[in-house]
Design a protein around this nucleic acid. Sequence first.
RNA 1: GGAGGCAUGGCAGAGUCAGGUUGAAUGCGACGGUCUUGAAAACCGUUGACCGCUCACAAGGCGGUCCGAAGGUUCGAAUCCUUCUGCCUCCGCCA
Length: 425
Amino acid sequence: MLDFSKIRQNPESVTAALADRGTTFDVDALLRLDEKRRAVIQQVEALQAKRNETSKQIGEVKRAGGDAEEVMAQMRAVGEEIKDLDAGRKAVDEAIAAILETLPNLAHESVPVGPDEAANREERRHGTPHAYDFEIRDHVDIGEALGILDMSRAAKVTGARFSAQFGMGARLERALAAYMIDLHAAAGYTEVLTPFLVSPESMHGTGQLPKFADDAFYIEKDDLYLIPTSEVPLVNLHRDETLDGSALPLKYCGLTPCFRREAGSYGRDTRGLIRVHQFNKVEMVWITDSETSFESLEAITAQAESVLQGLELPYRVMTLSTGDMGFGAAKTYDLEVWLPSQDTYREISSCSNCTDFQARRTGIRYKPAEGGKSRLAHTLNGSGLAVGRTLVALLENHQQADGTVAIPEALRPYLGGLDSITPRA
RNA sequence: GGAGGCAUGGCAGAGUCAGGUUGAAUGCGACGGUCUUGAAAACCGUUGACCGCUCACAAGGCGGUCCGAAGGUUCGAAUCCUUCUGCCUCCGCCA
């Protein structure tokens, strides 16, 4: 949610900034609602003040044994008036909220302006894609040949876009996740195990609702959503709290499955593990102050990169353009890992600074260490990493001519020292 | 799933089952000050959030709202009623 006073003061610049993000809306209508809101508040409060004062006097009269019936009748009428005005106030508040809820965060000045991913800016590359002197295979062929991945049996159990991993396929997934979490824990992150089902309020707090309801799995009977990312529970952990500024930043990481309906992407990435309805992801979340959050974005991105570096996977870092960023983000770096089978880089992590956008929705504040009034916190999130896609990248990048897959040094301790994956017996 | 109890300010804890100067006693904590070479102790003072108006979105002032949440009764509700949520205890069930 945007800062309303900012809109009130600079309607033109906010409108222009939102246009860069592909959002148009009627500012004038919003400002008219705001004027109306304030006018009604004044009326209501004037009447309330009068009623408070008079009620106090009625109390005194009654205690003295007097009769106050006449004033009481007057106040009855005032009460009715207040009730009517209050209803109007509520309606205006809701109308304003309905508009504000659908407005995305404003992009940071360093974000390239553009309509879509074509305007994304490459920042840097790390590692060099292998030159393979044999016919490379994609992760589905590799995994099925090794007997560790089975998409069709998963489809039998549930349906399309689900996966099943056997033997080393399952163990590798577990090893990758453990490796990632250990790396983050060593860097000062607190590991958190969260619920995988969340309330509508939580989805609303991080910005998945109300606009993106179709992207999430929803359990109607219990009014709960399956999390599309652990960013949702991790951020909402501190909803409606005022944190101690000297304790910031809070740095959390957690492994959860993520559930996405992938509405509107029916034809894309239909093969393999790239785009499935359920995948594991290690997520990092920072709750920090408003002064240092963009430095923190560099730090969380570097932390995500360290996973790819440890696994010896080539990648590049992209700054998403205004048109390609997520709803709550002010700035986003995507980490894209090299996939030999696709001869291109594919997203494996997304690191965003949501500034005060989610904090305003969730009511997360902090008392500055140097004193003064409490302020809205800034929240950041970053995948570190999507485990399923990491498995894909690992199988494809470290495939060998003989069909086996080499295990990078850093991961071997998690696999009992194993240095390569061979066909399942 | 069944039965019962509880939800008050940073914490503890009054006030609720006689509704009226109670944003809320008291204690602790925290902050400022006096005292002290310094500290402790003692003493004095301060100590929530949000919104509106005035206005520089400052300070100050005025007003409003907030005693788990949402409604209701009433001239007036922390106090009465309804619903919801959370926590605790007992029974049942279960990994």
